[in-house]
Design a protein around this nucleic acid. Structure first.
Lengths: 109, 109
DNA sequence: GAGTGATATCGATGAACGTCGATACCAAAT
DNA sequence: ATTTGGTATCGACGTTCATCGATATCACTC
């Protein structure tokens, strides 16, 4: 059975064999979620009263220094899991739910 | 790691803020899925004709040496994503779908 | 018991990553 | 223009991890 020709990138893990390229892309996406600080940032932003949170509050909330939080927020934004919006000096973040849905579907949604 | 442990702690990322402990456990689970070889092993096993696959076939299928495949299979088994069954000299693997469902739900299912 | 073959473990190596101090960048205020 | 303060980037350090050769373990066969 020649697996690599059957699928494109993001088929459910349980329903179809992944190609090498698809597995590589999925792995990158899951790696973004494989850090506890990033998971907490994501859930904090998602649970914020107005669906958005100022970056200035996050270092205290996750108990990490500002460069570390900025680094993780960049990774989340580059992965398309959160959206960054600059307002004056402050950076506000909200979640981009479609991206999470892609990963959820990959797990056999 | 036990299934009951992860069930009690992992609230959906989009619906409730994660505790530090919950985030740590979820991160460990997602880290297992953050490697392309493990994702391919998982999908290959899931797509096997009888729902199970012999470990002897996997090094060729994922293009890695036998110690590497054995290492990844142990990680998948320890995470409860795959079940190992010894038959004579051969080790057979099948997926444990409940575990994937837990992760899927954590993404806001 | 000796031999064969499948799988797991060990040890080493190189790469990737989280963290943070120092610093640069940028927008607003005075 | 200068200062203030929030954010991003840089550089370094220690840790984690994927990979694989060598070796050990185990089950079956003869």
């Amino acid at each position: 059975m020649q697996v690599t020709e059957i699928n494109t990138c993001c088929e459910p893990v349980l329903d179809a064999a992944l190609s090498e390229e698809g597995a590589a892309e999925l792995a990158v996406a899951f790696k973004v979620l494989s850090d506890p600080v990033r998971l907490r940032l994501l859930s904090l932003i998602a649970c914020a009263p107005d669906g958005e949170l100022c970056a200035c509050d996050l270092p205290a909330l996750v108990d990490r220094k500002q460069p570390t939080v900025s680094h993780h927020l960049s990774i989340l934004a580059d992965a398309g899991l959160v959206v960054r919006e600059q307002r004056g000096r402050w950076a506000w973040f909200r979640v981009a739910p479609q991206r999470l849905a892609v990963l959820r579907d990959a797990l056999g949604g």
